[in-house]
Amino acid sequence: MNDRSLQETRKFFAARAATWEEKYPDDTPAFAAAIAELALPARGLALDAGCGTGRAFPLLRDAIGPAGDVVGVDVTPEMIWSARDRGRGEYGQLLIADVGRLPLREGVVDGVLASGLISHVLQPAAVLSELARVTRLGGRLALFHPVGRAVLAARRGRTLTPDDVRAEQNVRPLLHAAGWTLLDYHDTEERYLALARR
């Protein structure tokens, strides 16, 4: 992420951090279903990439078990501070970091949840490669949103375009080039999920 896009992203999310969760309905069941698809091993390491307020942290902790580790990274300090204020730090480690340059060794992550992330990064191919770098062979990635692309576009008063990075015809080759294999793809009113394996 270049400095300008980094500052724009931080500004956008900083203004929304304190009330982020209250703005949306409870979508815990949708998050739980996406996390189940990751098939996280007990005592493994789960990464919440672009974790925001850490709303998925309790679910990731449940999935990975008490002996596992949960790490959440977000580039916006206010989101991490909000996560800590909400007590999410008791479920894992919260880090202010760029998902394009993760402070993790190669091949240590068992599963990555990337909720709402891919459409907010300037270089999705580079981010997917970085997520692949830190994920072990056989580990999984869930590009997820609790509603589908059409619902999200309508909420924002936009229309879907063919160049949307989340469209299957766009995300599949991006994933493949980064070292992922797309296993499953859903884009319905209820959720968006592109599930891939390293």
Rank of each mutant, 00 (worst) to 15 (best):
L141I: 14
T159R: 14
G50E: 13
D85C: 06
D74N: 15
D184N: 09
D184I: 01
R61L: 02
R43N: 15
W20H: 13
Y185E: 05
A33Q: 11
L131G: 14
L128E: 08
L104C: 08
R156Q: 13
E37R: 15
F57A: 15
V70K: 12
K11P: 00
H186M: 02
R191P: 03
D48W: 06
R197Y: 00
R197V: 15
E22G: 13
L6F: 10
L38W: 09
W20R: 12
D74W: 12
P66Y: 03
N170G: 02
V127Y: 10
G50Q: 04
M1K: 00
R155Y: 00
A150F: 06
P29N: 04
R155P: 01
D74M: 06
R172K: 07
R16M: 05
P146Y: 07
R133G: 04
L122K: 08
A39C: 06
A15H: 03
H176G: 11
R101C: 10
S5T: 12
A132L: 07
Y91I: 07
I96W: 02
I118D: 05
Q123T: 06
A33N: 06
A36V: 05
H120R: 12
H145C: 06
R55D: 08
D98W: 04
Q169I: 03
A153I: 05
T28H: 00
V134F: 11
S119L: 13
A194K: 03
A196T: 12
G111P: 04
A32I: 07
G89E: 13
V108L: 10
P173H: 12
V121N: 09
A42L: 10
Y192P: 11
R133Q: 12
V70A: 09
C51Y: 02
K23Y: 01
H186F: 14
G52I: 05
L104Y: 09
L143Y: 05
P103L: 03
A49I: 01
V108S: 02
G92A: 14
A150W: 03
P58N: 00
E190N: 07
D187W: 01
L137T: 08
V73T: 15
R140W: 10
D163R: 13
E21S: 07
R101Q: 12
F31M: 02
A15C: 00
G54D: 11
S82Q: 15
P25A: 08
E190T: 08
R166W: 10
G148D: 10
L193W: 09
R86D: 03
G179I: 12
F12V: 02
L104D: 12
F31S: 14
R133H: 10
D187M: 07
L182A: 06
V99Q: 10
G111L: 03
Y24D: 11
F57P: 11
V70G: 14
R133L: 03
G89R: 06
G107I: 01
V108K: 01
W81K: 14
L95A: 09
M1P: 01
V112Y: 01
A194T: 10
G116E: 05
R101N: 14
T53Y: 03
V134K: 14
W20N: 04
A49S: 11
A97L: 11
L143C: 13
A14R: 11
W20I: 00
G111S: 07
G138W: 08
R158G: 07
V151C: 01
F57Y: 12
P77A: 02
G87D: 11
L175M: 09
G179S: 10
G138H: 08
R101E: 15
R10S: 01
